[in-house]
Design a protein around this nucleic acid. Structure first.
Lengths: 269, 269
DNA sequence: CGCATGATTGCACGTAACACGCAAGACTCT
DNA sequence: AGAGTCTTGCGTGTTACGTGCAATCATGCG
């Protein structure tokens, strides 16, 4: 009787899916179609957009899909934790710093670029330049300049640190021992006025120390989030005159210790 | 003076990014971070949300990204921008050759990969491997393996030859002089049974010669279009036993001279 | 069989993000 | 230097979103 009634009314009042089944169906549709629209789902599943939204919110929380404006899509790959987190913060600041540093580099210069995203931005602003020799141990800078015919690009060899996308180790230092430069641009995971540059491994600090020693002028590029931070325990001291380049978001508290140093210039951009 | 002025005006009047640069920056952020937020972008790039929305709309139309509610995320992997430039010829053959070579490499091996697209394909098939040490002077191989944590990746430094996307020169040879390997995989612009490997510059042939000398087993990867060709005048002789790996499109005329060589094995895939 | 409990849904409302048009400003090119 | 193009910021209305609330449905228990 109940069944008869249901089948009689037909499409008008057909039995609705249960919540779990409906969500599973939605998830499958997204997997196959790649993208869905709230309104269409509501119509085809005969529920209100509100319900669909709730379903999508649940699936999003669950991680299977990603919301879009007015719909949802497959969340094939969420994020790359390797380089993503660091590069995500303060992009504009890093870019400004890189742009400033690029303006400091003149025709005929030979410069050393450290690994890291900030020096990567610096390299980006050098792409169109010519009459320039760039020495780098960073993959990001390397990628930026690989196509720039006008630039003599020298790479330090060595072992690749996958997490920092840079070359380190005795082979890198061996290569560097045959080179010097006019200007050196270093990055930093953390920076302390007294201790110097903080990094995750001694391999990195050792190379940075050597790079700083190989150039006439030393610049440290560090956005304000790095100042006063010491996230790791390996340090590269800065015992020669150097220039700190950071962004204007740095507080006076952060900058004070660096301004107090002799032979150290502080630039904010 | 100019520099001093800039640093004085500081945050107040800093130069803003041009539209194209900003969009490129946004695209890059999305590629690396996977997801971004309109408000944050607006704040960090110092433009209004409206402008960010316009940028995102443009990038969406372009297919680079996908909008979400209040932000944007990476769209399906449309990437591979750097790859596939003029290497369009014989991709399938190169890939087969690279796949065969990858199968030759076992756990614990240390291998040297030459620069070039064919060795790049070889590297591609090694991406998921572990317990492997790869030494390379090629940017394509480097790009393929940069994210592969399981692989110890050592790069020869040196000067980048932009046209061949590989490192050459005395610094590369210096680095190589500290290394040896189980297997060496060389590419070739041209290959002659009597003369050896033909390249555009002596820098390249010199390095190839040294690489061949540094490995226990030597493989030359060359699709059939290279056999018997001598497009240039610099040669790297092959005076030790070696293995030619080419594609099945090679004619008997092409293969004959190589089969006639003593201590030379010929593989077609 | 009837009732209670929990889950689910539709609706309404306030909020946030979006798209579009317009005018002012910046940049480029001749 | 001036004209034209591109870009940007702001104001408008529109759309989608999220949440609280009450009604409905399914289910379990006495």
């Amino acid at each position: 009787m109940g069944a008869a009634m249901r089948q009689e009314v037909g499409a008008e009042e057909r039995r609705r899916l249960r919540a779990g089944d409906r969500r599973e169906l939605i998830a499958r549709m997204i997997q196959t179609d790649g993208t869905v629209v709230v309104e269409e789902l509501a119509r085809s599943l005969e529920v209100t957009p509100s319900t669909i939204r709730r379903d999508l919110a649940l699936l999003t929380e669950q991680g299977t899909i990603a919301r879009t404006y007015g719909g949802a899509m497959s969340a094939g790959h969420t994020a790359e934790p390797t380089l993503g987190q660091r590069s995500g913060l303060a992009v504009a600041e890093k870019d400004r710093i890189g742009r400033w540093a690029a303006a400091r580099i003149g025709p005929g210069d030979t410069v050393i670029l450290d690994a890291g995203t900030t020096t990567g931005r610096l390299a980006h602003h050098l792409r169109a330049r010519a009459d320039l020799t760039v020495i780098t141990c960073g993959l990001t800078a390397l990628r930026e300049l690989a196509e720039s015919d006008g630039i003599e690009l020298i790479t330090l060899g060595g072992t690749l640190r996958h997490v920092s996308q840079g070359f380190v180790g005795p082979l890198a230092e061996l290569t560097l021992s045959r080179l010097t430069a006019d200007k050196v641009f270093l990055g930093a995971d953390g920076l302390d006025a007294r201790l110097g540059i903080c990094e995750a491994s001694l391999q990195q600090t050792s190379l940075k120390e050597m790079m700083a020693d190989r150039g006439k002028e030393v610049y440290v590029l560090a956005d304000s989030s790095k100042l006063g931070q010491s996230p790791f325990t390996a340090w590269a001291p800065l015992d020669r005159p150097w220039t700190l380049v950071t962004d204007s978001g740095a507080t006076d508290d952060q900058l004070g210790p660096f301004r107090a140093l002799p032979d150290t210039e502080v630039i904010t951009v």
